[in-house]
Design a protein around this nucleic acid. Structure first.
Length: 207
DNA sequence: CATGGGATTGACT
DNA sequence: GTCAATCCCATGC
């Protein structure tokens, strides 16, 4: 079942943590969210920091809406708008553990390894065929939806770290990764896999 | 209207 | 490790 708007209408850092373990779905493809980042208008790394513009008005709208934008002229990045209507904030979905439609994802990505299909914000949108046309669409009604935590993922442990690829407000620990997951993006946060030795990753989180 | 800068990725040295 | 690809949009003239 898709998450209701009220789920998103809370403090964005809280929602970013609660979204880990939930399922992002588009058509026949879906994956468990294993990495997120929070962005809020009060800090300069957030697109909403500049105020309402043609680009950012979605961020200031009601929660539970998709904010999709193009990055570096190549990739589409997908976010979930958070906080009450009028506050500009969103959670960036950074990585998924592939769940459904894996063969379709492999074709779209031109990659076979499960660990590489959705281990980055630009990779997962390519794997799920999420594009700019999905900007401002409703995440409860679809076509792109986010469902409640997958079985076994309700209590997943999180590893906080600083956000990736930004130059402003780099010190905020607003990136959240599922502990022990092999499907998160690089750079891996320190302590992602407790007791990791010889580069061998642990199994997926308990559940 | 011109310009500059990305919430990235993959190929290459 | 370095670097190019390539589009949208915010900003400034």
């Amino acid at each position: 079942m898709s998450l209701p708007a009220a789920f998103y209408g809370r403090p964005v850092v809280e929602v970013a943590q609660d979204l880990v373990g939930c399922v992002l779905r588009h058509g026949e493809t879906a994956g468990v969210i294993v990495e997120t980042e929070a962005y809020h208008e009060s800090e300069p790394a957030c697109h909403a920091h500049v105020g309402r513009t043609a680009r950012t008005h979605v961020l200031f709208g009601p929660p539970g809406i998709a904010y999709v934008y193009r990055s570096y002229g190549i990739h589409a990045l997908v976010n979930a708008v958070c906080e009450p209507d009028g506050i500009g904030a969103a959670v960036l979905i950074r990585a998924l553990e592939p769940l459904d439609g894996i063969e379709v994802m492999r074709e779209r990505r031109g990659v076979l390894a499960l660990e590489r299909l959705c281990s980055g914000p630009g990779k997962l949108t390519q794997a799920l065929a999420i594009e700019l046309e999905h900007n401002a669409t409703d995440l409860e009604r679809g076509p792109v939806t986010i469902e409640e935590a997958a079985p076994g993922w309700e209590q997943v442990a999180l590893v906080p770290s600083t956000r990736v690829g930004i130059t402003k407000a780099p010190e905020l620990p607003w990136r959240f990764s599922a502990a022990g997951s092999r499907y998160v993006s690089k750079p891996w946060p320190a302590g992602l896999v407790a007791g990791r030795r010889g580069g061998r990753a642990a199994a997926r989180p308990a559940g």
